[in-house]
């Protein structure tokens, strides 16, 4: 081509150059235009199996944190207006500590009424006693008279009757006293029942009652205060029933809360529920139906240093990894793997 530098030919020189440049351009365009199908690492840490289980047989499950006593929905024995709430969420209460107080004015009035009746009965007893004493002395007097003509027979009979009647009045007054005392005791018991107390030591999880509100014994599952023993916390892990046979019960589980899956803790085995139950899904849909049954296994979480640093809270969802049984079902699964390596 350099033979004819002056006679620049469009078809012999420019066009091939244009075509070459076009080819180079096309190669660059095609090379850079290829779609990006590289795999990328997730930006947020997903829940991963712990190191020691990474290549071992394992069972995974999801669960919910609960108090070791399970959640206790505190109810009331007597309906009425709440006058005082003694606790707030987060309080740690001891067994028997008052939680809230139902209006007790009516019962206190009944106590005072009973006390008045006791006083009245005591007065009646005193009166009856003095009457009985008078009647007894009178009867004695008549009986000690030696001269039969001095006292008529009729007088004696009347005195005997009076003494006996006085004695009966005394007995009746004593019975009234007992009755009034029983009434007071019953009212006092009721007074005690108006103060709702903690059935166990534990933490107050939720308070859904305020002074002035009406608490009712009717209405089923109304819970006014929720409490539970949170030292330690438990997790209830749902294991699919088809996986349940593989799980190594008794081994500790590795548990991480949702959204902080890099912070895994070891939870020690507590028990497996004897009953396999339908899975409770957490979609909160009213029309929810279930056909999956799960074995619930309970593990105890290690306690946190302080409540502010607590990783787990009651009701939180967690992901858990549990070692699988070494023998039995696991060997079936290893088989295809062995085939591959051959």
């Amino acid at each position: 081509m350099a033979l004819l530098p002056k006679n620049l030919s469009f078809s012999r020189q420019i066009l091939p150059l244009v075509a070459l440049a076009g080819l180079v351009l096309a190669v660059i365009y095609i090379a850079t235009g290829l779609p990006d199908r590289e795999l990328s690492e997730p930006t947020e840490e997903p829940p991963r199996a712990p190191q020691e289980l990474a290549n071992a047989a394992r069972v995974a499950g999801a669960g919910v944190v609960e108090p070791s006593s399970e959640v206790i929905d505190i109810g009331t024995a007597i309906a009425g207006l709440v006058t005082m709430v003694r606790v707030q969420p987060g309080d740690y209460v001891t067994k028997g500590q008052p939680l809230f107080q139902v209006d007790d004015r009516a019962v206190r009035a009944r106590v005072r009424e009973a006390e008045a009746q006791i006083g009245e009965a005591r007065a009646a007893i005193a009166e009856a006693q003095s009457a009985a004493a008078t009647a007894a002395r009178q009867l004695d007097l008549y009986r000690n008279v030696s001269d039969p003509a001095a006292v008529s027979r009729a007088e004696v009979i009347r005195a005997e009757g009076e003494a006996s009647a006085a004695q009966n009045r005394l007995n009746a007054a004593r019975a009234r006293l007992q009755s009034a005392q029983a009434m007071r005791s019953s009212a006092t018991t009721e007074l005690g029942r108006l103060v709702v107390r903690a059935p166990i030591s534990g933490e107050i999880l939720a308070v859904d009652i305020r002074p002035g509100e009406y608490v009712s014994t009717m209405g089923g599952n109304a819970s006014f205060i929720r409490m539970g023993e949170t030292r330690p916390l438990h997790v209830r892990i749902d294991i699919d029933e088809s996986e349940a046979a593989r799980i190594a019960l008794g081994e500790p589980a590795t548990v991480s809360p949702r959204g902080a899956s890099d912070r895994q803790v070891k939870a020690s085995f507590v028990r497996a529920e004897p009953q396999v139950v339908p899975k409770r899904s957490l979609t909160n849909s009213a029309a929810e139906r279930v056909d999956v049954r799960v074995l619930q296994v309970i593990y105890a979480l290690p306690s946190a240093a302080s409540s502010n640093e607590a990783l787990f809270r009651v009701g939180q969802q967690v992901d858990a990894y549990i070692p699988a049984r070494r023998n039995g079902a696991t060997t079936d699964i290893v088989k295809p793997e062995a085939d591959e390596t051959e």
């Binding site: 997730p42 829940p47 199996a49 899975k279």
Partner: peptide, 19 residues
């Protein structure tokens, strides 16, 4: 699938993570 399928898959060794 039922939601427990996630946990079944997580139980397979060699699964780094499953969502």
């Amino acid at each position: 699938m039922p939601s427990t399928a996630l946990d079944k898959v997580r139980g397979v060794s060699g699964v780094e993570w499953a969502v």
